[in-house]
């Protein structure tokens, strides 16, 4: 099967250099070739009874983190806000 690496990379927000393209393409082909051995199954997909989930109550709670703590790891902060490139013209 042909795989459009450029398109997949775009969807995944990755850039693939021209020099790496052929190798990634071949490896993806091999990997997809490997996973294609799966048999056809006509069962219906239902929730797994082994892992029931009990959701917690939807109640507002005070956050244990301060704004400063959470922003300490941000690459760029100004006046208590995260800085990102301009997105609206």
């Amino acid at each position: 099967m042909d795989i459009d690496i450029r398109h997949i990379a775009k969807l995944a927000r990755l850039e693939i250099a021209d020099s790496e393209l052929a190798q990634f393409e071949q490896q993806m082909k091999n990997i997809v070739g490997m996973v294609e051995n799966m048999p056809d199954i006509s069962d219906e997909l239902k929730p797994d009874p082994n892992t029931p989930m009990r959701l917690r109550e939807d109640k507002a709670q005070a956050n244990k983190f301060t704004r400063e703590e959470l922003m300490k790891n941000a690459p760029s902060v100004k006046a208590g806000c995260l800085v990102v490139p301009k997105t609206v013209e």
Binding site: I3, I8, R13, E15, E20, F24, M28, I31, V32
Partner: peptide, 24 residues
């Protein structure tokens, strides 16, 4: 910024898995 950050920040195996996951 997203694309350059992710392309420089992730190694080849992580990129392969992200692309396989995106593909499937």
């Amino acid at each position: 910024m997203y694309e350059k950050t992710r392309s420089q920040g992730f190694g080849a195996e992580v990129k392969r898995r992200i692309m396989l996951g995106t593909f499937v």
